[in-house]
Write a protein that binds this DNA or RNA. Sequence first.
RNA 1: GCGGUUGUAGUCUAGUUUGGUUAGGACUUCAGCUUCCCAAGCUGAUAACCCGGGUUCAAAUCCCGGCAACCGCACCA
Length: 587
Amino acid sequence: MINKKEPDKFLVLNELARRRGFFWPSFEIYGGIGGFVTYGPLGKKLKLNIESKLRDIFVNKIGIFEIESSIITPGKVFESSGHVNHFKEPMVECFNCNERFRADHLINEKLGISLIDIEQKSLAEIAEVIKKNKIECPECNHNFKEPTQFLTMFKTTIGPYSGAIGYGRPEAAQSIFVEFNRLYNMAREKLPFGVIQIGHALRNEISPRQGLIRLREFTIADLEFFFDPEVADCSMINEVKNEILPILLAEKREKGLEDTINITVREILDKKIVCSEWQLFFMVMAKKLLLSIGVPIEKQRFIEKLPWEKAHYATQCFDQEVYVTRWGWIEVSGHAYRTDFDLNCHMQASGADFRVFKELEKPIVKKQLTVKPKMAIIGPEFKDKAAELVESLLKIPAEEIVESLEKKGYYLVGDKKISSNHVEIIQQKNIIRGKRFIPHVVEPSFGCDRLFYVALEYALTTKDDRNILSFPITIAPIQIGVFPLVNKDGLNKKSKRIAAFLRTEGLLVEFDDTGSIGRRYARADEAGIPLCITVDYTTLDNDTVTIRDRDLWDQIRVPLCDLSFLLSDYFKEKIKFKDFGDFIKSK
RNA sequence: GCGGUUGUAGUCUAGUUUGGUUAGGACUUCAGCUUCCCAAGCUGAUAACCCGGGUUCAAAUCCCGGCAACCGCACCA
């Protein structure tokens, strides 16, 4: 096992995927373009099945809302969220050789200014730094043109005549945040609640590689979970207390160590390793999701991001990683504690109020002293200075004014004397029924194309030089193959009838009568079909068929009349293949 | 974006060094025959030189440019 070199499953899978129609690079007839893929018939089904796993866990079982919003987004949204500032890199181009360089890297190299500091600078400031310090092209020592920004978001204009800028969303989260008020309303104005969106996102990567792992257009599943930071307990955490998570902590990573610890949820809570219970809960769900699509726990881990690796919005962030043969550990989901960053940004930029009202158990009654200016007297007396005076007056605590009035008979605002004639002193009962605050957010975010890839990689096995995709039965793109043993004596007709019947029962069935029976099994294995039904001469005698298991290559004979409920239970994972009956002895 | 390697049917590939008849093979696919359980066999069919330009009587082959893929670097917020 140790000496055995792992085969590069990436190459095998890419070849298989093209040939059998799981996925392939898009636009090949025009030479192809990096970062875009087309999912074929089998791939699309598999992808839908994986997405419905996600739905099942988060939407159906936990009750997260699912919404769908547009990909094209007005520029303001991403300006407010900070993306326009963070999704760009300053570039400079040489006048002489037209070579392009990252301006921030050049400045960092030549002057030793940290990348984080440079990031704060505007383009004009960067241009100035380059001019002042006479930074020249490292290739030919000529001057640079004015620096420009390379934006990794896709930019467009909205409408034919307007210059309104729009961006292709680089993530689906912002279109949840901007709808917060309506969604909160639909949650009956109660926290906590969550909203998920599964859809396409666009990132104009400089060099997308690695097939499905890094695309320019990809499917993202962003879940935003809103909660009250003062009532941050997760109501479902007890159900998962004994679950184990493999975690690689930031403190270990900083020392260059790779030792993952397997630790129970209970212990994580005790040691306060993850700062939000809800985040921890979603990490457990993410682990379960990956298990359900066939990735064993020992090939999963959660790594804590180091401070400089974190996104601009996150305070604590864990990446869920899966081990793949070609690249080692790759990220499949990110779990970020975004606090109130995003809602706050949009609130300030748009003027919308995203604060929620929290009622106190007992309203607080406060006696409050208020000084109310009598404008009828102040106005005529101070004329054009009146407005300024009143403004200053209202900023001063009422007690201070009252005290001064009682002691001295007047109160000085600047050089103006205010006497008790000018104001009315009111003793008010103020009832505070609650307070307003901006909810906090934890965000699990899944790359669906990566889930798809790892599902394929972990499904791939070989037997007698044959490729088999041993998908978990609930995500298999096709459920049943129906074959006549040979193509004569009415076996073909009979099997077509059985296939049609199973389809009416709601099963995904493929009928195949070409080539030999062995070839059809091989084809079915490569498409990952879990069960194959074969109609033979015994079927004509007594209405029984054989069912073959993809992974065992064993067969069991069952009566036609039992087929429907056996298969139905099987795909609901209520029974196993061996529960169908006795294995037929192979010759 | 930089450096290296590469680009021939659906897939894998021979041919490229040294330009030359109809680009060869295997698997797949399709049709027919055959076939009582794991890619069997027989017959036939479909199907390719990444794109553009140049050199030449003649280019898959040589040259230039582009595109794409892979590996390394950088990037992946």
